[in-house]
């Protein structure tokens, strides 16, 4: 098994799918000769040609619209957003055109919209966002947010093979910071299945993407306090893995929900409601939310750090919850 970065895992996943299936092609801004702002498609145009690695005008609605149109002819487009912060420029295409198409008139839209998201890189308010909730609230889409190289590769492959529109949020903080084992043989990670990345008995942290790594760090600190933390990595935020969420609550009886995006209307609220429905009787304490603030993501490092969830915050909240 090779050790790959998160970025290389995604890159390899798309590459392999393009090798395997002639209906897969990429489109996006600066993805061809330049290889993409983050180099996810570096070298693709040389291998696959300009027909299958298309540099587009700066036109997000056209990119999504064209991807959708091509998917109606049986193609499997993979469209890159240079930053996921720009995805609202194509909101109407995604929400009204692509997401509703199967429900309304029975046309499948097997396409992938992917790109870098997330903070911790001082990208400022327009290069740091986690806009996944806009799509979680859109029936018809699948929303994927991997945390590890293994999952990133397995999930991008699953997304490309899926017959539904998938939005694939890559966390840019993780791109080259983490490495992990990635098998060389073909595999997929199922969409809609969460994963216990750390078994524990005292409390559960339900999270995904970059926050999985913060939770793991916090769990090491908490271990010294004798607090045994279970961490559930959702991997897919729509559809949510209800069973896995209920199971971890039934096991540890105490829950922290941790995410990077703003608190109000965030995923934690939805998961808390779900826990009420599925496992209310198992709760031995209040459901705790650790999230980004209700503001834009500020630029200056001290402000950004203040905005985003911190390991110390997770440790403190976990201690309080354990004592509850």
């Amino acid at each position: 098994m090779a050790q790959l970065t998160y970025l290389e895992a995604i890159r390899q996943g798309i590459w392999e799918e393009m090798e395997r299936d002639p209906t897969v092609f990429c489109l996006g801004e600066d993805i061809g000769i330049y290889g993409g702002a983050f180099k996810v498609t570096d070298g693709f145009i040389g291998r696959f040609g300009a027909e299958r690695v298309i540099d587009t005008p700066i036109a997000e609605s056209a990119i999504v619209g064209a991807a959708f149109g091509a998917s109606l002819t049986g193609m499997r487009p993979v469209a890159e957003f240079q930053f996921m912060d720009f995805i609202p420029c194509a909101m109407n295409q995604i929400s009204n055109m692509v997401a509703k198409t199967h429900y309304l008139w029975g046309a499948p839209a097997p396409l992938v919209l992917r790109g870098p998201s997330g903070g911790y890189v001082h990208g400022g308010p327009f290069h740091s966002q986690n806009p996944e909730m806009w799509f979680v609230h859109n029936p018809g889409l699948k929303v994927i947010c991997p945390a590890t190289p293994y999952d990133a590769k397995g999930l991008i492959k699953a997304a490309i093979r899926d017959n539904n529109p998938c939005i694939f949020f890559e966390h840019k903080y993780l791109y080259r910071r983490i490495k992990g084992e990635v098998p060389s043989e073909d595999y997929v990670v199922p969409i809609g299945k969460a994963n216990i990345v750390r078994e524990g008995s005292n409390l559960s942290i339900i999270t995904y993407a970059a926050m999985v790594h913060s939770a793991l760090e916090a769990a090491e600190v908490l271990k010294n306090d004798g607090i045994d933390v279970e961490i559930l990595d959702l991997r897919t935020v729509s559809p949510l893995d209800r069973e896995a969420i209920a199971a971890t609550v039934r096991k540890t009886n105490k829950v922290i929900i941790l995410h990077e995006h703003s608190r109000t209307g965030g995923l934690a609220g939805e998961i808390a409601a779900m826990i009420n429905e599925e496992a209310f009787d198992s709760l031995d304490g209040p459901i705790v939310r650790i999230t980004g603030l209700d503001s834009a993501v500020p630029f200056s490092p001290p402000q950004e750090e203040f905005f985003l969830p911190k390991v110390s915050e997770i440790v403190n909240e976990a201690r309080k919850l354990k004592a509850y």
């Binding site: 092609f25 990119i63 149109g69 002819t73 198409t101």
Partner: peptide, 25 residues
């Protein structure tokens, strides 16, 4: 036939994409 949505103009890139898909084939 591609189904329209109410929002005006959005069919244009979609139809362009249909032509792109066909051309790739």
């Amino acid at each position: 036939m591609v189904s329209p949505i109410s929002m005006l103009g959005d069919l244009i890139p979609v139809m362009s994409g249909v032509a792109l898909g066909a051309r790739l084939q």
